[in-house]
């Protein structure tokens, strides 16, 4: 049982790499939270401009969409660090410690693999937009490499955090799946 946030902070991680990645992910989490707050502000500003001033609202909707996308992608490593990504750990719970350790190493490695593949193609997609100077087809006409940048950045940081989690499990700094032994 258990999937939601557990007391992760309490464990003393004593590895420089793991600590550094944790710190980077926390910073990313702050950025994500800040972007969500800014999105709230811009949406309220848009309603004010339209309803009270009766002016045009050209850029707000698009800006808010990109902010929420960026918040999601950049927030990924932080939520991974908090173990906030829901999982089903019925099977891990039933396994004896050695098998649980093995399964945890396998699932983390698979996760790192798939996120790295997506990071690669995400970078390529971003580079395409940069190279060909794509813009959004709106009056605002944002250069698309800017919002697309959140793809390689967010996926890259997530891969990094997953790697740190794997290292922590292998070095026994952290328990497999964050479960109590």
């Amino acid at each position: 049982m258990a999937t939601q946030p557990k007391a992760v902070q309490s464990r003393a991680r004593k590895n420089l790499f793991v600590n550094t990645v944790d710190a980077i992910s926390t910073l990313a989490g702050w950025c994500a939270a800040a972007m969500i707050v800014v999105a709230v502000g811009i949406t309220c500003q848009m309603i004010f401009v339209r309803f009270v001033l009766n002016h045009s609202t050209i850029w707000q909707t698009e800006m808010v969409i990109y902010l929420v996308i960026a918040a999601t992608l950049i927030g990924l490593p932080y939520v991974q660090k908090l173990r906030g990504h829901v999982n089903v750990d019925l099977v891990p719970l039933m396994l004896p410690p050695r098998l649980r350790f093995g399964l945890c190493v396998v699932t983390l490695s698979m996760s790192i693999l798939i996120i790295t593949v997506m990071l690669w193609y995400g970078y390529e997609f971003w580079h395409f937009a940069w190279d060909r100077n794509w813009k959004s087809d709106t009056v605002w006409g944002v250069r698309l490499w800017i919002p697309y940048l959140s793809l390689p950045v967010g996926l890259g940081l997530l891969a990094l955090q997953l790697t740190a989690d794997l290292v922590a499990v292998i070095l026994r700094i952290d328990t497999p799946f964050g479960l109590e032994t």
Partner: peptide, 23 residues
């Protein structure tokens, strides 16, 4: 408050004094 289909129409309608809402 007007919703226009397409960038060029938004520009023209804004020029006519409409307020553009995108949705």
């Amino acid at each position: 408050q007007t919703r226009a289909a397409g960038k060029a129409f938004e520009q023209m309608l804004a020029g006519a004094g409409a307020s553009i809402a995108s949705m």
